[in-house]
């Protein structure tokens, strides 16, 4: 990696200040994506601001009908949280199926959604549950947060501080892992909340997306039969050595049905 200045602030305000005005400064949460990028010399930040020392950013709280997860909360903590397990078991399940134990013990929800890897799992839950992303400057709805391939609504220096997930009446996540990386090749998050039914698909396209036709069908009849003939078009889906776009389109249907069945269990 190239040399950079390393900072480990104790407060959010200090972190924001450290990042301000420096074009080439980067925040770091778990470093599970940033550090490999640095090691491969694919990024050359002037400064790395480690958010790991900021206590206010980590932790899980239940606030009314919502589970609020701090941006610095590790996947392992979400996976094992009694609050998450009881309020939204599908979210704990999702976190439990990210990467391997080392990655889960370092990687964070803030880093994951800020990075918006097309194959990441969390975007599925954020959109599937219609969560709200809170930053140091304001709030983003789930549908407006994820913009495209590795692209979000975050502006320069804006930090994810927490994500608020509404509790679900029924929800499940079904992941078809990429055989090599075990990121999501196709991941479908299905949820029935007070706000309605959502079907969010990650891994299959350049960015998480919803399948409206499935949502409508499930709103009428929340059963896998209701969506068995709803196909998503292969056009625009990812295609690589592990899965063609057609195969991914097919898997979206299979994973969606399995998610509905799991949610109904």
């Amino acid at each position: 990696m190239y040399d950079f200045h390393y900072h480990r602030p104790k407060t959010l305000a200090d972190a924001v200040n450290l990042l301000k005005g420096k074009d080439e400064a980067r925040p770091m949460s778990g470093g599970m994506t940033l550090i490999p990028t640095l090691k491969q010399r694919l990024a050359r930040p002037s400064d790395v601001v480690d958010l790991g020392g900021i206590k206010e950013l980590a932790g899980i709280k239940v606030e009314g009908n919502n589970v609020v997860i701090g941006g610095m909360t590790r996947h392992a903590d979400v996976a094992s949280s009694a609050d998450v397990k009881s309020a939204i078991p599908a979210l704990a399940y999702l976190a439990e199926h990210i990467g391997d134990p080392q990655v889960r013990n370092r990687g964070t929800i803030g880093g994951s959604i800020a990075n918006n890897d097309p194959a990441a799992d969390y975007p599925g839950a954020v959109v599937g549950l219609n969560a709200t992303v809170t930053t140091n400057t304001g709030k983003h709805t789930a549908d407006s947060f994820f913009k495209g391939l590795f692209e979000t609504a975050l502006s320069d220096g804006e930090l994810v501080t927490s994500v608020s997930f509404p509790k679900a009446e029924k929800a499940a996540y079904m992941k078809f892992p990429n055989p090599a990386s075990r990121y999501a090749m196709v991941g479908v998050f299905v949820a029935k909340t007070a706000g309605g039914v959502r079907v969010a698909v990650t891994g299959a396209g350049p960015c998480v997306f919803r399948v409206k036709a499935m949502e409508d069908a499930l709103a009428k009849n929340f059963s896998s039969d209701a969506i068995k003939d709803i196909k998503v078009p292969a056009d625009g889906l990812n295609s690589d050595i592990h899965a063609s776009a057609e195969y991914r389109a097919h898997l979206v249907n299979v994973m969606a049905r399995r998610a509905v069945d799991a949610a109904n269990k």
């Binding site: 899965a243 063609s244 195969y247 097919h250």
Partner: peptide, 8 residues
């Protein structure tokens, strides 16, 4: 015999 090859 990857999932893709088998499915195809």
């Amino acid at each position: 015999a990857t999932p893709l090859n088998v499915w195809q």
